[in-house]
Design a protein around this nucleic acid. Structure first.
Lengths: 206, 206
DNA sequence: CGGGCAATACTACTTAAGTAGTATTAGAGG
DNA sequence: CCTCTAATACTACTTAAGTAGTATTGCCCG
């Protein structure tokens, strides 16, 4: 099982190496800490498994997956991250990552995930998977409409309902209606959380 | 140099152990992954240095520092975190942490920090320190008191007043008082704007 | 020692936010 | 043509947020 690691925290790399080299059927073919090097490593080594951190400084590990999938290389990706953000998980899954393991999980779980994914199946963190199933059941997962995004964007500028209403030339009542809808769809409790949600989305995109 | 590690990511612990045991004058006296065990470990082992992660699942490593300082144990604390948030750094410094090292720094930097702090001096991540000096010069940001920053930090997690009160063990009335004060000092109108303000501060360091 | 400030807490009040339910209109699509 | 949905708007209600003013405690500093 050939493995490539893309991870920008040296201590985590150290931990990964010392854990994975104990498994005699694992071989680490390369380590790097940014997206460009990562893509190059995968293109030249054709590893079975790529362990990849979502947040690489200012970059995102998702960009590597996107790029590699387009090159028709069939390496499997296991996301290794400390983010418990459901949004991150959702995006990784949609991009076709075969695995998603949290850094706070035990090394055994990671090793298990590598073997499972190596056999062509998928392994996602159980807690996040549960959460997804619950969301799907309750159909909370609806995406926001374009108008709701507009309201949300105004909110993320720090405007109150009246100001949003003026900007969009609608009544405050309608803004409230949209706002309720937004909170329900995103599973949030108030506008402050919604504003933070948008801000976090913006950070991920960078 | 006796060391205790409080860290909830097993892989990082693995990395730390394999890096620190190479230094023959370092000895790891204990490892744990939550605040209660951490305080107990420090109380019984009296280590010279405590390496401590800021984010321990839902808990905060800062609580350990606060508790230990009250017990009059003179262990030195080095924060080891992946947070590049200036606010986290500021709060750690105010609480009396002797060191602040980012997980994305090289092991050599951590080892250097441990030796420096062991000799009774302080070691803070140079980039964060630069940022602080610049802020202090321009007198931008010393408006809020440390308690107000704590309230603001909780707010930026999306908590409401009652939840903030519970976290900080004070009444909701007091939180409201702080919140009014914060909004007045920052020249903002509501908590959503305050949350966005914090989020923008955090982005500054990216 | 006394002054000032930070932190705590309270009451009482006002306003913004959010929920629930209903209704109308316009447009997209089977 | 009919159905479904998004967008608009309203009322009525409940709760969270924010303001104003007062008071106490503890601490640091000149």
């Amino acid at each position: 099982m050939n493995i490539v690691i893309v991870e920008d925290h040296p201590l985590v790399v150290q931990g990964l190496v010392s854990v994975l080299t104990l498994e005699c059927d694992f071989e680490i073919k390369g380590v790097c800490s940014n997206t460009l090097e990562g893509i190059e490593l995968i293109r030249t080594k054709h590893p079975d498994i790529v362990l990849i951190d979502l947040r690489l400084g200012k970059e995102s590990g998702l960009d590597i997956i996107r790029a590699v999938k387009e090159l028709n290389i069939d390496s499997k990706f296991i996301i290794l991250t400390s983010s418990v953000s459901y949004l991150d998980f959702m995006m990784a899954e949609e991009l076709g990552a075969e695995g998603y393991v949290l850094k706070e999980s035990l090394p055994e779980e990671l090793i298990y995930a590598i073997r499972v994914v190596g056999r062509g199946r998928k392994y996602y963190d159980p807690e996040l998977l549960d959460y997804k199933l619950k969301k799907d059941e309750n159909n909370y997962n609806d995406k926001l409409t374009s108008r709701e995004w507009e309201v949300l964007r105004k909110l993320s500028l720090g405007l109150n309902n009246q100001q949003i209403a003026n900007k969009l030339f609608i009544s405050e009542n309608t803004v409230k209606k949209h706002m309720s809808q937004i909170l329900a769809k995103l599973g949030l409790h108030d506008r402050t959380q919604a504003a933070l949600y948008v801000k976090n989305l913006e950070i991920v995109k960078h």
